[in-house]
Design a protein around this nucleic acid. Structure first.
Length: 454
RNA sequence: GGCCCGGUGGCAGAGUGGCUAUGCAGAGGACUGCAAAUCCUUGUACGUCGGUUCGAUUCCGGCCCGGGCCUCCA
């Protein structure tokens, strides 16, 4: 099965041909850790987790690198406010981030480098760029000289003139060219920094990804992924640094970018206070629901994240799990269906893939068979879904009352007795009592099963 | 101003030059003591104006509307 992906470099869907089929290399930009990850941070994590799962299925060896940015001026600001080190600022958000991403079904990447661990490599690259005439030192800064790269701007399709015309910020006086960007900047005594050939300072934003991808994936690699908003300037500048430093024609062969997430129809913003953090959402929803809602739309399209969307994701997952629960007795080994593989292989069409899962669930409900069940489980696994035991899926969560499982079972037995004696008033009373406590009953052909209803 | 995306039925959301998306919600039915779950049936679509075509929601162009980026941002 051939994989096609949309390449931002060409703005076209292309056949994926790895640089080295025996080892596919993928890099995704991770978060800056100064706060809990919001749902917008989670989207690329989930989307490219599916990509990594797919690549692992298609190729013998995959290295997936997802970095953590733990040095940045927002972090510095937090540290200053609290009077603590940046390590102390980033420790907790990093821990929570890892925990939350795991909770929404994202497998840990093969490498999860943190920027502060690669300062030496960043300095080395910066020195080399100066030697090659692509960067220069000015007033304690090191800047990348954009005019030194003939084809700068290829990813974002921007030329130097556009950049200067569109500039909203005043050009720093020490820049040789208005489009030049910072690779290293000086730190004062209150700001974290490292010793460098240009004095005490800290790296610019873009150089970290150039250095870390080089470290783990080499000078060129297959896929570089991230959010749409990173195309410019972040990825454009990474490309400039890496290519000029290593003298390559490409940095990554394919660039993939996910669309924005809005919340309840509005752009997330701190001032409106309308951003959802994954951590908060997990208080209210299973991680899988959060994941499903992120995969319900195509990754390149904008996605509106809403409570209603989460609720629909929950209903949809209930349906899928119900099909598994209904066929509990069937043995099944996970097998990926061709239809799902084809959907995902077409530029990660997760909505289509999910619709295939629903079709399998329908088939299963209509005519239970082990093959379809195997397909459903195996295909869902490729999407990072349906990993729960169906019974656990329906029974977990908290009920309003103080009923435990044994108490519920006891009431079900009492109701069964009432039903046997045709005392339906009593039977319905017990059912209503349970429903009030958040427990819904289902009288199957054999026994009565129950589930927690939100 | 420059660059780039979209506009599909009540909602979400795929896709295709002529044939059912899928899910949720709605209506009717089957099953059930009644429900639930499940199954069956079912209504409402492709922004607008032109063009290409035997035929366009699908290709091309104009227009309208919405969104993103233009050095904080997934």
């Amino acid at each position: 099965m051939s994989l096609k992906i949309h390449n931002t470099l060409t703005r076209k869907k292309e056949l994926f041909v790895p640089l080295d089929p025996s080892h596919v290399r993928l890099y995704a930009c991770g978060p800056t850790v100064y706060d809990h990850a919001h749902i917008g941070n989670a989207r690329p994590v989930v989307v490219f987790d599916v990509l990594a799962r797919l690549l692992r299925r298609l190729y013998p060896r995959v290295t997936y690198v997802r970095n953590i940015t733990d040095i940045d001026d927002k972090i510095n600001e937090r540290a200053r406010e609290r009077g603590v080190s940046i390590a102390e600022v980033t420790e907790e958000p990093t821990r929570i981030y890892r925990q939350d991403m795991l909770a929404i079904g994202a497998l840990p990447p093969d490498q999860e480098p943190r920027a502060t661990e690669f300062i030496a490599q960043m300095i080395a690259m910066t020195e080399r760029l100066i030697e090659k005439g692509h960067a220069y030192e000015a007033e304690g800064h090191v800047l990348f000289n954009v005019p030194s790269m003939a084809d700068y701007g290829g990813l974002s399709r921007r030329n130097r003139k556009d950049l200067i015309d569109g500039a909203r910020v005043e050009v720093a006086p020490y820049k040789r060219d208005p489009a030049d960007f910072v690779m290293w900047k000086p730190s004062d005594d209150d700001t974290p920094g490292w010793d460098s050939p240009w004095g005490y300072g800290r790296p610019g934003w873009h150089i970290e990804c150039s250095a870390m991808s080089r470290e783990y994936l080499g000078e060129t690699f297959d896929i570089h992924a991230g959010g749409l908003d990173l195309i410019f300037p972040h990825h454009e500048n990474e490309i400039a640094q890496s290519r000029c430093c290593f003298g390559t024609d490409i940095m990554a062969k394919y660039w993939m970018h996910n669309g924005y997430v809005t919340v309840e129809g509005e752009k997330m913003s701190k001032s409106l206070g309308n951003f959802y953090t994954v951590h908060d959402l997990l208080e209210e929803w299973p991680g899988e629901v959060i994941r499903y809602a992120l995969l319900a739309g195509h990754y390149r399209a904008p996605l509106d994240y809403s409570k209603q969307g989460l609720s629909e994701a929950k209903s949809a997952l209930d349906r899928l799990y119900q099909a598994l629960r209904n066929t509990d007795e069937l043995e099944s080994e996970p097998v990926v269906s061709d239809a799902v593989l084809a959907a995902l292989s077409d530029d990660l069409n997760t909505p289509l893939a999910i619709s295939r899962l629903h079709e399998m669930a329908s088939t299963l409900n209509k005519s239970p068979n082990a093959a379809t069940k195997s397909n459903l489980i195996g295909s869902a696994e490729l999407l990072g879904l349906l990993g729960d035991d169906p019974e656990d899926w329906f029974k977990r969560g908290s009920s309003d009352g103080d009923l435990d499982d044994a108490g519920i079972e006891a009431l079900i037995v009492a109701r069964a007795t009432a039903r046997q004696t045709k005392d339906f008033a009593e039977a319905d009373r017990i059912r209503d009592e349970l429903l009030t406590a958040g427990i819904a009953l289902e009288d199957g052909s054999g026994a009565t099963t129950w589930k927690r209803a939100r």
